[in-house]
Design a protein around this nucleic acid. Sequence first.
DNA 1: AAATCAATTGGAAGCGCTTCCATTTTGAGG
DNA 2: CCTCAAAATGGAAGCGCTTCCAATTGATTT
Lengths: 351, 351
Amino acid sequence: MTLKKPTIDDVADRAGVARTTVSRVLNGGPNVREEVRQRVLKAVEALNYRVNPQARSLAGGGSRILTLVFASDLESEPNSFYASALELGALRGCLALGYQLLTHHVPQQSPDRRGQILDLIGSHKCQGMILTPPFADDVVLIEEVRRLGCRVVTISPGGAGRDVADGVGIDDEAGGYDIARHLLTLGHRRFAYIGGIEGHLSAARRQDGLSRALREAGLDPDSVELLRGDFTFRSGGILTAQLLDAPCPPTALVCANDDMAAGALSIAHGRGLDVPGDLSITGFDDTPVSAIIWPPLTTVHQPLKEMAHDAVAALVERLSGAAGGLGWHFHNLPHAVVVRESTGSPRPKPA
Amino acid sequence: MTLKKPTIDDVADRAGVARTTVSRVLNGGPNVREEVRQRVLKAVEALNYRVNPQARSLAGGGSRILTLVFASDLESEPNSFYASALELGALRGCLALGYQLLTHHVPQQSPDRRGQILDLIGSHKCQGMILTPPFADDVVLIEEVRRLGCRVVTISPGGAGRDVADGVGIDDEAGGYDIARHLLTLGHRRFAYIGGIEGHLSAARRQDGLSRALREAGLDPDSVELLRGDFTFRSGGILTAQLLDAPCPPTALVCANDDMAAGALSIAHGRGLDVPGDLSITGFDDTPVSAIIWPPLTTVHQPLKEMAHDAVAALVERLSGAAGGLGWHFHNLPHAVVVRESTGSPRPKPA
DNA sequence: AAATCAATTGGAAGCGCTTCCATTTTGAGG
DNA sequence: CCTCAAAATGGAAGCGCTTCCAATTGATTT
């Protein structure tokens, strides 16, 4: 326990420069000789100095407000664990870094959705924005937000978004691949995939991973039954019902999130199917629901809180840090397949 | 949109006093004439002045750290929605009020649990503590925490806790009563209640409400089959299995939280029972799980985020505000029965 | 009525940081 | 070498608030 935290003046003394210069280095200001910059950075490191966000925000700078934007369909409650976990992570980050957080749920359907988001910037003087899917891949939106002088970091950008902003997420393609490998190893050959809404590129990438795994296994990716849900329990159920009505239903159902998988599970039960005997079902996210249903869901763990936390950190870095320009960076977090009891070997056909 | 927010000096000018005096009034300091205090308060109101938490924390005062304490059994994941929702609310409050939040999960079983909690105060210089059940009713703990100079606010104290600290919560007794009324109206006569761990007084109060409703309906409260779970999905299932093995199982199963109700539901399904035809099941909390299982759960909505938010607000008020002394206050938030599909009229016995 | 003391109130010094502005250095160009 | 703008650096003024300490007030005491 250090009795006293080092201040900017301590760093200045140690580096033999003025407080002003240290501030300049820390905030990526111009007009600092490279040699001096290094010296300051070294002092910062040596003292393990961390700026005091309170003092910084008191002294100057902008509003220090960030906004976390979610797409909410009318159906999907903004109460979902997915949203809560991200907000929790973002909040923790903001608290530590001295920023405020605004959380907004924007109807994904609304034709004016972009306008609604852009308005937030003006009305709250928000300096940075965290975009979740599918907004994370709305390149037009991102450009407009930036034009308004607001920094952007995306969570789980699927591809398009990565070229225009910093992003945080897992390797969705690999996640899809891994879960498919798990299922293939169990002996499954007939797959269905309940994906996400149009434009949700990260869900699309999970499907890409599934396809790759099938291809490697010598199966035709096109044989996968493809459906589009909206990430709600309800849609998972409805689509699964359709699926099971088909003449030759799959033995493995891969869902793009846990909620839809839960919906699928409940429909399967309703039809008297044995899970995983008759149908293996997988989710994605590893939210608490996956452990709270029967059988507990095999799913892909995604570190949602960390993702949002890192997104805030990235935003703050851009905001106070060096070169604003290009050079977008994607911060890749680890994922993991969590095997529970909703998957197993397909039961040999009785017929 | 005010261009400039009023500062403490604006208030001082308007009230015709020095900045120091305003600060004193705002922080409940002694030595201020009542007349002056009123004048300052009036000026604050007129200007709609709000202290700037950043400046305040920069200037002085304590650590501005609050701690949110949960009891976690080894089993129960600290990832539950209950905990997340409370943390989310507390975090929002802290962000707005310029405080930091530490969240700690303490093994409820550990004989040293009190020591662990008390250590937090010393090692982090935490100024305020939010205690959730069953710690919210641990009077000894509360006294000790306070003796260390740390303020306390409880969430869902069941009774004992209310006499020694400020508290926030719903009327649990009424919640239990309301859900029982719902069930009685549907025609149920044979009840079972899966309660919480020993010492979880708010869960006990829900049971009190259930008893009252039965008594009013002319039934014997002692006829209720009473079981003790630990709020996990798993325990809900295990206890329900026991229950259903009995010679004359109940038609209505009231659970002290949603997770246990979900566990009960899954076991009921496993036994081929029809819910709600053969067995009606209710939860408590209205977390997202209640909508994500089949059939969706009838439950009692509890505004968890608001509760935690208010707890933080109460703590901060005590911390910076006037008279510290006695006069504990319980802040009662509204609850509501949410009727979904896990409850219905009991099917007439076939036998 | 002078002296004493506690209750009030005001003055002023920072908390750690950003930023405007003045000052010093540097490096061309003359 | 000298001049002068551009680049690099330092000085100092706060941001809004708490708090120590000195000053003022009014009530008590002898």
